[in-house]
């Protein structure tokens, strides 16, 4: 089977004044892949994601996301992607159902479909009885799982997850990753950033950013072999602190 690339980035660069936040990065992401995006704080991950989501214009380089160009077709990109972050997710003062309805409405889903989707999400997360509760009364783990479901409500081809599991307990983190994996099996591409290095192991491939550049890009297994490390944690520390450039 030929690989279909849903993200194709070529020498993408973003400068803020004299500061180069993202420095000529290139990579491709396959359809259905779980693509991990890791790096130290300030390494340029968030800037890169913003460019791929079409909300930040690159300084130079090319990027095609889901077949659309980030310069000219950012509106089309936005329709084909889902986005969820630890910081911005759901409206705390609305109920679960209201949040689902609101986001579904944004993407222009019809009311019949919205109803169906709502029941489906509540059912699959086993929180039907909590449908009318305010978001702020829910435990963080539930919120994050719900936020992920909502981020993929419009059947996006790619879902960007920016530190989706920060502060979530280990059990819920595992449930969360189960959701990510089943989404991947359904052909959705997942683009994930995380500070939990055990989660990095669940990714098909990892791209590690250091100072705006991609310092390493491979499967966790290959990375560990190359760096001669037992865990991704060690890989990360070695690459980030010793500035080992692999490619």
């Amino acid at each position: 089977m030929e690989d279909v690339f849903v993200i194709d980035v070529n020498k993408l660069t973003k400068k803020f004044g004299a500061f180069t936040a993202v420095d000529s990065i290139s990579f491709k992401v396959k359809k259905g892949e779980i693509f991990g995006f890791i790096g130290a704080n300030g390494a340029g991950k968030t800037t890169a994601i913003k460019m791929l989501c079409g909300i930040l214009i690159p300084t130079s380089g090319d990027a095609v996301v889901s077949g659309f160009d980030v310069y000219k077709q950012s509106e089309k990109i936005k329709k084909n992607i889902g986005y969820m972050s630890q910081k911005f997710s759901l409206y705390e003062d609305l109920t679960v159902r209201e949040n689902i309805k609101f986001y579904a409405g944004i993407y222009g889903l019809k009311s019949g479909v919205i109803k169906e989707k709502t029941e489906f999400i509540l059912d699959s997360l086993r929180i039907t009885e909590a449908g009318n509760r305010l978001i702020k009364s829910l435990p963080l783990g539930w919120k994050q799982k719900l936020a992920f479901s909502i981020a993929s409500i419009h059947n996006p081809k790619i879902v960007f997850l920016d530190e989706p599991t920060g502060g979530v307990d280990p059990l819920t983190r595992r449930q969360f990753w189960k959701m990510i994996q089943s989404a991947s099996e359904n052909g959705i591409t997942l683009f994930v950033t995380t500070h939990y290095m055990d989660e990095a192991e669940y990714c098909n491939r990892i791209s590690m950013m250091v100072d705006g550049r991609i310092a390493a890009l491979d499967s966790p297994m290959n990375l560990k072999e190359k760096i001669k490390a037992d865990t991704m944690q060690q890989v990360f520390i070695k690459i980030a602190s010793q500035r080992v450039i692999l490619n």
Binding site: A40, H195, M197, F236
Partner: peptide, 8 residues
Amino acid sequence: TGVDPVSR
């Protein structure tokens, strides 16, 4: 929280 492994 939210800090990368090296800084941690």
